[in-house]
Design a protein around this nucleic acid. Structure first.
Lengths: 192, 192
DNA sequence: CCTGTTGTGCAACGGTCGTTACACAATCTA
DNA sequence: TAGATTGTGTAACGACCGTTGCACAACAGG
């Protein structure tokens, strides 16, 4: 079968993900990706085909290792009443850490919304799916918190909460206090 | 005094603004700016110093000609009770028009949040100020609608409304129905 | 061991980026 | 009108972009 590769794909994708996350797709240069992954362009292109291919792998990795683990308690078979507030406070803590990726760069997928890459149909679909997944998870959290609420109220609360989360992701790079405030408001709305 | 310029600065800035709005700062190429404005690079650089200088002028133009006219009823001396709902429905109508800039590109400033330009302190400040201006206007709208509400409730409603608007701007490029839904939710929250 | 296949390193590709130098045209003041 | 000053056009700059070809190294199967 020939020579076997000397690197772990997951580790490489994770490193590249960090670069895309911080810089955005367009501004993540191939030299920067080489430096972060420790691989030569030759190996990157051989393994992922193109910069875009590496980005797609990074997005999948982001969904699997960053987004979904945090949403897990909200998509479990039975959702705890406080699961949504836990999610919001956990996210708040993550966004407050300016030294970590999430705190300084927000959300990889939300960031691509304003990028030229948002013209790509596949990327659009991915981000739209991500939003729907987030919205569905939040809705389950609301329902668990308010078992007796009317469906329309649950939906409205879910929409509000989801928007507050997306707004926090959007703002965190530019106005961190406003982003945290957004999540605090989500908790306040739920407590009310 | 020397030769006088043959173009109207406002018109040129407006054309450039459209390009930055649609493409984002990084992907708005100088040739594209030349084509849109009808000016040679030489004239652009002479008048604005750099691509960044032209962008700054475009942002000011955006604030003065796009953002503030729409917010005007909310920052007037006396605010009508329905001013905020009018703002939201007007914005909804604008975002629904996919053939217009606003409908297909959202908000010039929100779009820069995810861009590498968001690392620039001046840009960060501009966007943060914009958000604060929007938030203050929305708050006045809420207060006019609910004259007897407690301050904390007005603040919370303002935060929710502002986040729903920002979320709509963020999403409109990727998931237009979700963006419109976000604004509908804002109206619903206020009606409740 | 030999052969075929696959991963890695080096170097260069054509293209585009934002910016600038310089010559010329045009319009001001004196 | 003379001269200084300012706007416009042409052409090129060096730097960087993502991508590719090619030679070589390493491991698979027989």
């Amino acid at each position: 079968m020939g020579r076997s590769q000397t690197f772990e794909t997951d580790r490489v994708v994770r490193s590249a993900r960090e670069v895309f996350w911080r810089s955005g797709y367009e501004s993540a240069s191939v030299p920067a990706l080489e430096a972060a992954t420790g691989l030569n362009r030759s190996s990157l292109y051989h393994a992922f085909g193109s910069k875009r291919g590496l980005f797609d792998a990074a997005v999948q990795s982001y969904l699997d290792e960053v987004v979904r683990p945090r949403l897990r308690p909200l998509v479990a078979d039975d959702v705890a009443p406080g699961a949504l507030v836990d999610y919001l406070t956990g996210l708040r803590a993550a966004l407050a850490r300016a030294d970590e990726v999430q705190g300084s760069a927000g959300c990889l997928l939300v960031n691509t919304c304003g990028s030229p890459l948002a013209s790509d149909d596949a990327v659009r679909q991915t981000v739209a799916d991500y939003r729907a997944e987030l919205r569905a998870a939040v809705r389950r959290g609301v329902a668990a918190m308010r078992p007796d609420a009317a469906t329309s109220d649950v939906d409205r609360l879910a929409d509000v909460c989801t928007a507050l989360v997306i707004s926090a992701f959007t703002l965190v790079r530019v106005d961190p206090p406003a982003a945290l405030q957004s999540l605090d408001t989500a908790v306040a709305v739920l407590a009310h």
